[in-house]
């Protein structure tokens, strides 16, 4: 492995994931499709964290699942470590699954209640025939638990004996078992209470430093994403509307939707909170079955122009790895 800094671990090109909508009782036919992800492109570099934010239903989780090939890709390319995996079937994905793992949102649903911690953490090893003899296996599980800040003697307990934060650590240990390159974190801290969130986020950062991990960090909590991400992609209705480094995005958001999202972060000081200008976007996210023509955000945009209603703004490179899809920032 060469150590050229901006090596791309993952390239996603014009990814589309559409779910067919079927109707009819006897003769089933497709009456439309939910365009959950509709033309998403981004790169993830080695050892960086790409934050993926947006409101519920914008397609951020679907993007994560499609990258893992846990969903059928409608069109577009997913290139992982230089290999185009878009058309890989189940058998060809198997060796690749070792190198991309997932951490889940729900610390209760993500661990099999009938398995001991050692079995949960060690299962990926067994699946890929890396378990070795019993002693080596136990040792590996113990070192994984140690890596996520759990005690080795917790290996023989069942998940229900642990708190939410500890369970999430077990989930992280399972994801680390195969020494993956990329970990997709699907809202890994949003089910935890705030004090525990910080600890788990710190664990993620700590592991990244030690193991050189690459993360896609899906979240809707912008404060958490800001803390952990190097770069952030903002999604709206199946598209990325802005992608920028964390500091740039929070310092000077370009897209009106990003502005609105940032304005929605509460400030933990009632005096400031009461006086600061409120930029509120109204309405609901339009249906992903029939996204609006032109810019998808024009129905809710506070700075909508005529052109927005008819012309779909392309993603424009603003230099320095920053890109935005908005007519306000045209050429």
């Amino acid at each position: 492995m060469t150590d050229s800094a901006p090596e791309r671990v993952l390239e996603v090109r014009d990814l589309k994931v559409h779910f067919p909508v079927m109707a009819g009782a006897l003769v089933r036919r497709q009456v439309g499709s939910v365009k959950a992800v509709d033309g998403v492109s981004f790169d993830v570099r080695r050892s960086e964290t790409l934050g993926l934010v947006g409101e519920s239903g914008c397609g951020k989780s679907t993007t994560g699942l499609a990258v893992l090939k846990m969903l059928d890709i409608t069109s577009g390319q997913v290139i992982f470590e230089g290999e185009d995996i878009s058309d890989h079937d189940r058998a060809r994905m198997r060796p690749i699954r070792r190198r991309m793992q997932m951490v889940y949102q729900d610390p209760f649903g993500s661990l099999n209640p009938r398995m001991k911690v050692a079995e949960i953490v060690g299962e990926p090893l067994e699946v890929h025939g890396m378990a070795g003899d019993r002693a080596a296996y136990r040792e590996r599980v113990a070192s994984l638990l140690d890596m996520v800040g759990l005690l080795p003697d917790m290996a023989d307990r069942y998940p229900h004996e642990f708190s939410g934060g500890q369970r999430q650590r077990i989930g992280i240990a399972r994801a680390l078992a195969l020494e993956p390159t990329l970990i997709i974190c699907d809202e890994p801290v949003s089910a935890l209470d705030v004090s525990i969130q910080a600890q788990v986020v710190n664990l993620f950062q700590d592991l990244q430093e030690r193991l050189g991990l690459t993360y896609i960090f899906i979240a809707h909590d912008l404060a958490v994403v800001r803390h952990i991400s190097h770069r952030i992609a903002v999604m709206y209705l199946g598209r990325i509307v802005e992608i920028a480094s964390s500091s740039e995005l929070y310092g000077s958001p370009l897209h009106p939707y990003t502005e609105a999202l940032l304005a929605a972060i509460p400030i933990p000081d009632p005096a400031i909170e009461a006086t600061r200008p409120q930029q509120i976007i109204t309405g609901e996210v339009p249906s992903a079955m029939r996204p609006p023509p032109g810019c998808r955000f024009h129905t809710r945009c506070p700075r909508v122009m005529d052109v927005c209603r008819s012309v779909d703004p392309p993603m424009r490179d603003m230099g320095g790895g920053r890109a935005v899809a908005c007519h306000l920032h045209g050429a």
Partner: peptide
């Protein structure tokens, strides 16, 4: 359950 999904995603 997510643990079934997790098992699927490890292959």
């Amino acid at each position: 359950n997510a643990y079934v999904h997790a098992a699927q995603s490890t292959g």
